[in-house]
Structures are given as C-alpha cells and as structure tokens.
C-alpha cells in the first residue's frame, strides 16, 4: 500500500468533534504522513510520541466532507457511523480507512480482508448493532402527553435512533435521554434538536404504572416453562440492556 510508506510517530490532538476529525484527515494529507495516534481532548495526557495539535477549521472540514461524499454512500456512512463509537483508537482506525479510500476509491470499502477496512467495518457494525438493540429495547413512558425514554448505551447512538422513531411516531412529541453521554434527542412540534442534559428523572404516574404492569403481565404469561433457557435469553437481550426494559425490572408489588 503506498500510504504505509510514510508512517510517523506523531500523535494528533484534536477537539473531539467530527469537523475536528476531518481536519486531522486533512492534516495527514497536508503533512504527508500517517500519525501513530489520533487523540481526543480527554485521551492520553502523556504520550511517548511527539504530538501535533490540529486546529479545527470549518473550511478544511468541508473540503474533506465533500471528498468523502464523492467516495459514495458506503464510505461516508462508515466514517460517520464509526465516529459515533466510543472505542479507544477509533479516530486512528477511521483516519487510516479514509486515507485508503481516498487512494483507492469507493471500491476500497469492500476490501474487508484489509486490516484497516476490517477495523473501520467493525466499528460501524458495533455502533449499528447497539443502535438496533435500542430500537428494540427502548421503552417510552408517557408523562403529560409526551413520551420519554432513558437509555444507557456505550456508543453515541442517538443520531441512529432519530430516523426510526421520527418515522414511527410521526405526530408525537418525544424525548430520548442518553444517560451515558448526557445528551437528549428532543422532538417537539415536528422539529428535532439535541440537548445537553444532566439528568432526566421523571417518575411514572399511576396511569403509566398501570401500562407497565399490563405489559409485565403479558410478558410473564408468554413463557413456556418446558423450554426455559435463561442463557438463550441473555444471548438475545444481554443484561446491560435490562435496566432500560421495564419488563425486566423486579416486580414492584413484590416485597
């Protein structure tokens, strides 16, 4: 691969935003090098490498974004979705993937046998899989005519939930609070905005508790004892999702 020739031991530091990341891609071309690490603001205070601070520049970010768009939907989606991941090292993996695609063109996205492509693909898949789990397991509670839900995802999945729930509930107002990252997706009067929020702790009222009790009753009635297999249940719905699923909570009526 031609780009592997200019590996350096510099670490890039940037502000952790997506435009900032695109500027890192820009810098890597401008400086004709592949960095040894790409670090967000909170990562790795001390490194063995020399580091370069990459300033975020809107014009440069737009140029790279336009370039990615030219590489087609698969590449663009993979970088955008992969960036929502919170895995350490995702910035470097995506930068190497982006460089490879700029070199080889859109077809590089399918070269899953390549380590860089495989790494970027794994990032994208991890985020998409988690987003799908929350499309399945997120539970709304109604308070004052508005639906609200709290989720605890590892990755920043809110942008991937947006299209699904906006399409599904076209005339409803709702709020999904990502408690891990302190961000909320608010849809009100047909407009969507992302809000920074500390906490969202509404207590369900009696009517809402009635719905949850009904749902729990239904859920419990469905189990066939002869087929009981808790391991299989955890394969499909891992335990870390349970705290966002009201049917998995311990029964409130029980002492």
């Amino acid at each position: 691969m031609p780009y592997q020739a200019h590996m350096t031991d510099t670490a890039y530091r940037y502000d952790g935003t997506f435009p900032g990341f695109l500027c890192c891609v820009f810098a890597s071309f401008a400086r004709r090098e592949i960095p040894a690490a790409v670090l967000g603001p909170e990562e790795g205070q001390t490194t063995l490498f020399g580091s370069a601070d990459i300033a975020t520049d809107a014009a440069r970010a737009r140029r790279v974004a336009a370039g990615l768009a030219r590489l087609g939907g698969t590449v663009r989606e993979r970088v955008l979705t992969g960036f929502l991941s919170t895995d350490p090292g995702k910035d470097l993996a995506l930068l190497r993937f982006a460089r490879l695609c700029f070199t080889l063109g859109p077809r590089a996205a399918n070269m899953l046998g390549d380590p860089d492509v495989a790494a970027a693909f794994a990032l994208e898949r991890g985020v998409n899989n988690e987003a799908h789990k929350f499309i399945e397991f997120l539970r709304f509670e109604e308070r004052g005519g508005m639906l609200g839900a709290v989720i605890h995802p590892n990755h920043c999945v809110l942008p991937l939930l947006r299209a699904h729930f906006c399409s599904r509930l076209p005339d409803e107002d709702f709020l999904i609070f990502d408690a891990t990252h302190g961000i909320a997706l608010l849809r009100q009067n047909g407009a969507v905005q992302y809000l920074a929020m500390e906490r969202y702790a509404p207590a369900p009222d009696a009517a809402e508790q009635g719905w949850q009790a009904l749902w729990r009753r239904f859920f419990q009635a469905l189990t066939i004892e002869e087929r009981r297999d808790p391991g299989l249940q955890r394969n499909h719905a891992p335990k870390r999702y349970w705290r966002d699923m009201c049917e998995m909570w311990p029964d409130p009526a029980a002492p």
Binding site: I135, E136, E225, R228, D229, G231, L232, Q233, E247
Partner: peptide, 19 residues
C-alpha cells in the same frame, strides 16, 4: 397515522425461554 414497519422485522423483548 401511527407506526411503521421494517422489512427485517424487529424483536422487542425476549422471554426466559429465549423466544
């Protein structure tokens, strides 16, 4: 209207028998 459908289908919960 209320609702949408997905071609692949969506599961929403898994009972202790894993269904």
């Amino acid at each position: 209207a209320l609702g949408s459908t997905a071609a692949a289908g969506i599961c929403h919960a898994f009972t202790p028998d894993g269904r």
